[in-house]
Amino acid sequence: MFSPLSPRLLSTALAVALSAGVPAALAAAQQDASRPSAKEGAPEAACKHAVKAALPNPGSFKWVAATARQIDKDNYSVVADVEYLAQDGAVREAKVQCDVRRAQGNRFAVPKLRLPH
């Protein structure tokens, strides 16, 4: 039959089980905190899509890094470093800037785009 466990043994087993799960839960929480949410990354994604479509050779386009700054409630400024294959065949590095605004339906539009010359 079933033998009852002593309260001390039960509390020790519970403490061991809980302490084993704490590091994993803490690591998962730290990883989630460092990862930007989709909402935070949306202005950068809109800028990336617009820049890729505007530059020559979109297949050779590389988005290196970006910084987004919220100007007001619905407007953002995104500055990014990109690498692309120019029309002369040379790989170029450049800074681009996008003005991004939140449009209807929580979508993001890029009304102004500053590309390298």
Score class of each variant (00 low, 15 high):
residue 57 N to A: 04
residue 4 P to H: 02
residue 2 F to Q: 00
residue 2 F to H: 00
residue 106 N to R: 12
residue 88 D to F: 12
residue 96 V to M: 09
residue 21 G to H: 05
residue 59 G to I: 06
residue 73 K to G: 03
residue 82 V to Y: 04
residue 102 R to F: 06
residue 111 P to T: 08
residue 14 L to A: 15
residue 96 V to Y: 09
residue 105 G to E: 07
residue 18 L to D: 05
residue 34 S to V: 03
residue 7 P to M: 02
residue 91 V to N: 01
residue 24 A to S: 12
residue 108 F to I: 11
residue 115 L to W: 10
residue 10 L to E: 01
residue 67 T to F: 04
residue 33 A to D: 05
residue 88 D to T: 12
residue 22 V to W: 11
residue 76 Y to S: 01
residue 18 L to E: 06
residue 52 K to R: 10
residue 60 S to G: 12
residue 112 K to Q: 10
residue 77 S to I: 02
residue 94 A to C: 08
residue 88 D to W: 11
residue 64 V to E: 06
residue 51 V to T: 11
residue 89 G to K: 14
residue 87 Q to P: 00
residue 70 Q to P: 04
residue 43 P to S: 06
residue 117 H to N: 08
residue 115 L to M: 12
residue 67 T to L: 08
residue 88 D to K: 13
residue 15 A to K: 06
residue 51 V to K: 05
residue 29 A to M: 09
residue 24 A to T: 09
residue 4 P to D: 00
residue 98 C to N: 07
residue 85 L to G: 05
residue 6 S to G: 02
residue 84 Y to C: 00
residue 37 S to Y: 06
residue 75 N to H: 05
residue 93 E to G: 09
residue 5 L to M: 00
residue 6 S to F: 00
residue 25 A to F: 14
residue 66 A to N: 00
residue 49 H to R: 13
residue 29 A to Y: 12
residue 72 D to G: 04
residue 91 V to I: 00
residue 1 M to N: 00
residue 93 E to L: 08
residue 36 P to T: 13
residue 105 G to H: 11
residue 94 A to P: 04
residue 64 V to P: 02
residue 83 E to L: 09
residue 98 C to P: 02
residue 6 S to E: 00
residue 39 K to L: 14
residue 79 V to H: 13
residue 34 S to Y: 02
residue 6 S to T: 02
residue 49 H to G: 04
residue 7 P to K: 05
residue 113 L to F: 13
residue 91 V to R: 01
residue 106 N to I: 05
residue 52 K to D: 01
residue 22 V to S: 07
residue 49 H to C: 07
residue 65 A to F: 09
residue 56 P to E: 05
residue 72 D to H: 05
residue 113 L to V: 07
residue 20 A to Y: 13
residue 103 A to R: 13
residue 62 K to R: 03
residue 101 R to I: 11
residue 48 K to A: 12
residue 32 D to W: 09
residue 83 E to P: 01
residue 9 L to V: 04
residue 74 D to K: 12
residue 87 Q to A: 13
residue 20 A to W: 15
residue 30 Q to W: 10
residue 109 A to C: 07
residue 29 A to H: 11
residue 8 R to D: 02
residue 54 A to W: 04
residue 5 L to A: 01
residue 106 N to V: 06
residue 109 A to R: 11
residue 35 R to V: 04
residue 115 L to A: 12
residue 22 V to P: 01
residue 92 R to F: 03
residue 116 P to M: 13
residue 66 A to F: 01
residue 3 S to Q: 14
residue 77 S to Q: 07
residue 38 A to T: 12
residue 20 A to Q: 14
residue 71 I to Q: 03
residue 115 L to I: 10
residue 41 G to S: 15
residue 51 V to D: 05
residue 43 P to H: 02
residue 91 V to D: 01
residue 29 A to R: 11
residue 21 G to F: 08
